[in-house]
Amino acid sequence: MARARFSITQLPGFGLIAIVTFVMLYLPIIILVMFSFNEGVSQSRWEGFSLQWYQAAFNNTQVRDVSLRSLWLAVTASGLATVLATLAALGTTRVGRFPGQTMIYALINQPLMVPEIVTGIALLIFVAAIKVQTGYTGMGYLVAAHTAFCIPFAYLPIRARLETLDHALEAAAADLYASPIQAFRYITLPLMVPGILAGFMLGFVISLDTVVITEFVKSAGQDTLPTYMLGQLRRTVTPEMNAIATLFLALSLVIVTAFFLITRTRGR
């Protein structure tokens, strides 16, 4: 008689570990969301349902400003990163092997390997020096820093997409009298679109989320939503923060869901 195949779900304690893991992952978030709807100021005692903290958040001009800044920064940085990552992905998958290719991969993926705090401090010193030299204190520093940080996240899905594309498609286009530019315009680019969208969304979420880089690079009055929230938490914690965090969470969920839907539809 054949023995049942080994299955990890049959190990003793598997169920318990699974439950603890899910509780650790989701309970704090569920509580955070729950108390954003609390009638009172307490974070631990339920006093009834209300939308007053959402109202407060919407009426808070500071929250509105930092939210818009975060969105603008995320769109700009992720957009730039996506363009650069697309070029990098084309360069590393479509021109054949070249010496130093592995090195290039490593360089592109550098932000994935260097601890964020190290990047942050390095940027702080670097940006401070430029500020002293030029006197410029605009958003350019944040855009540049976020763009650099987003590139590897945008690069990975775009490159993955390109690697699944049969080179014979481009050969077929050339065979059917397409110039290299036409082959790119009509064949490669349209087929890359799912990868490009996925790359943009990943970059967007990463930029929206990063605290460390922003904290070290920003000038006065350049708070993003996460750095603003961090600043507020040092003072008093009202459920207004819960409401803002919940909205932030909802936005991230929408984007991540869209990301999965896009990457799942293969070959269109």
């Binding site: 498609l169 050969a171 286009a173 059917l176 009298y177 397409a178």
Partner: peptide, 17 residues
């Protein structure tokens, strides 16, 4: 693209989109 020759590829290479 400059030769009056067309190819039927082993993998067909039809444009999927």
């Amino acid at each position: 693209s400059k030769r009056p020759i067309n190819t039927v590829f082993q993998s067909y290479a039809l444009f999927p989109h």
